[in-house]
Amino acid sequence: MTTLVPSVTTQPAEAPAPTVRQYIRYLFYKARPSWRQLSPDKRAEARSELLTILEPFAKQLAVLRAFSTLGTRADADFVLWMVSERLEDFQELQAAVLSSTMGAHLDTVYSYLAMTRRSQYIDRHVHAEQEGRRTRVKPTGRKYLFVYPMVKKRPWYRLSLEERQRAMDEHIRVGHEFPRVKINTSYSFGLDDQEFVVAFETDYPSDFLDLVERLRGGEASAYTERETPIFTCVAGSIDEILGLLG
């Protein structure tokens, strides 16, 4: 006698939802001499037009913040810090800026593109709002922002994970000595010319200066190929930042 065994269909396990990551862009502008040759009324009208253009992007993007570099850099006047889950948002914003009256008098002098990613080095270092665990950017609203691109030397990537972890443990411990400075590390591998873009938020520039000096002596720093240009940026509303251009 033959016993029939009903077939069992195995349902494939559902794949875990992918971690939501964000794109980050730092876009630096400088006003051309032609901007200040316009009459005050024409400049005011152009600033108002650009503010109106940027208003919907402030709602559309996860982050849209403005900072002035007037007086801290000779080659840039202001920066827009943008965060979004859509790369196309950056394209649309830049197209809108360049099509405006004021945009015709602005040069894009620097642009850095990156993404969020969970750091592989932070599991031994746990504290509230741990940088490196987050894949979403949460600005603090502090007054000063220090931004720079970074490239590591290729021998860094040939070290074992254990060797790199040891160097980064030291690096992270030093960072914890400066709690008034918040770091935002983003990753650019294959997206842009640099490998990382690092942004530090603080109300105390002296803390940032002391932090950077301390980090220079660390093991991880010896594997840094480049971490310039460095931008010292002062926060303000978009209206205030554009107003500084006259």
Rank of each mutant, 00 (worst) to 15 (best):
Q130S: 10
V63F: 09
R43Y: 07
R136C: 11
Q37P: 00
D192S: 08
R65N: 10
V137H: 04
A96Q: 06
S188A: 15
A95W: 05
V151Q: 14
Y187D: 13
I53T: 11
R133G: 13
A167W: 12
L38H: 05
V147K: 03
R173G: 11
T101R: 12
D89T: 13
A74T: 10
L38A: 04
S39K: 06
R124M: 09
E55Y: 07
M115L: 13
E14K: 04
P33Y: 05
Q22H: 15
E201G: 07
L106G: 09
I241W: 02
Q165K: 08
A58W: 11
L113C: 10
E131P: 03
G217R: 09
P12E: 00
L209S: 10
R86E: 00
L70C: 03
L98H: 08
W156S: 06
F78P: 05
R154D: 12
V174T: 11
C233R: 03
Q91A: 14
E219V: 14
P18D: 00
A128H: 04
E162Q: 09
A17N: 05
A76S: 09
A44W: 11
W35Y: 08
Q60N: 14
Y23A: 02
A13E: 01
S84M: 06
R25T: 14
N184D: 09
R36K: 10
M115E: 14
E201I: 04
D239L: 10
E163C: 03
L191Q: 10
M115V: 15
K59I: 12
I183C: 00
M102K: 08
T3L: 15
L215G: 03
F67M: 01
R173C: 12
L70S: 07
V181N: 01
T140Y: 05
K153C: 08
E88F: 12
P40Y: 00
L244Y: 01
Y23N: 06
E170R: 05
G103H: 09
S68H: 06
